[in-house]
Deep mutational scan, measured.
Amino acid sequence: KELVLVLYDYQEKSPREVTVKKGDILTLLNSTNKDWWKVEVDDSQGFIPAAYLKKL
């Protein structure tokens, strides 16, 4: 599985998104959309702007 590093805090703005903190390491589930990547946070899944993430 691929991991990503969160570069900036992000507060979810819709139920399909997730809240993350700078420095979090998350599992990347889908990066086919260049603007929004799907990640797994704890036991939930959701989208975060790709610009907030860096592949490890």
Rank of each mutant, 00 (worst) to 15 (best):
K21C: 11
N30S: 12
W37A: 02
L53D: 03
Q11H: 13
K34E: 10
K55E: 06
K21R: 13
I48N: 01
D43H: 12
G46A: 15
W36D: 01
L7Y: 02
A51W: 12
L53Y: 02
K21S: 09
A50S: 14
V18K: 07
D24K: 06
V18D: 01
P49T: 03
P49Y: 04
K21H: 10
R16F: 14
T19M: 07
Y52F: 12
K1T: 10
E12A: 15
S44Q: 15
V20D: 00
K22Q: 10
K22W: 04
K38E: 15
K38W: 13
L5A: 04
K55V: 11
L56K: 03
W37N: 01
K38P: 01
D43M: 10
K55H: 07
L3F: 14
K54I: 13
F47M: 08
A51C: 15
N30E: 14
V4Y: 05
V6Y: 01
L5V: 11
V4N: 00
V20K: 01
L28P: 00
L7S: 02
L5T: 04
Y10C: 05
T27W: 12
D9A: 06
K1Y: 13
V6Q: 00
D42A: 14
W36K: 04
S44N: 13
R16P: 06
P49L: 05
L5G: 01
K38M: 15
A51Q: 12
S14L: 08
Y10Q: 00
T32I: 08
L53W: 02
G46R: 10
K22S: 07
I25E: 02
T32Y: 09
K21L: 06
W36M: 07
K1F: 12
Y52C: 14
A50K: 07
L53V: 13
W37I: 02
K1I: 12
I48V: 15
D24A: 12
T27S: 08
L3N: 04
P49M: 05
T27Q: 09
D24H: 07
D35P: 01
T32F: 10
A50L: 03
A50F: 03
K22R: 12
F47D: 04
S44M: 15
D35G: 09
P49S: 03
E40R: 10
E2D: 11
S14F: 10
V39S: 00
E2Y: 10
Y52K: 04
A50I: 05
L28A: 02
G23S: 03
G46W: 14
K38R: 10
T27M: 09
K13E: 08
V4W: 05
T32V: 10
A51N: 12
K21M: 07
S14E: 09
D24I: 06
F47A: 03
T32D: 14
E17C: 08
F47T: 04
N30W: 06
P49A: 03
E2R: 12
K54W: 10
R16G: 15
P49W: 05
L5H: 03
V18P: 02
Y10E: 01
L3I: 07
E40D: 06
L29S: 03
K21I: 06
E40S: 10
D42K: 13
D35L: 14
E40I: 10
P15S: 11
D43I: 07
W37G: 00
D42F: 10
D9W: 04
Q11W: 13
T32S: 14
T27V: 15
V39E: 01
V6I: 03
K55T: 06
I48S: 02
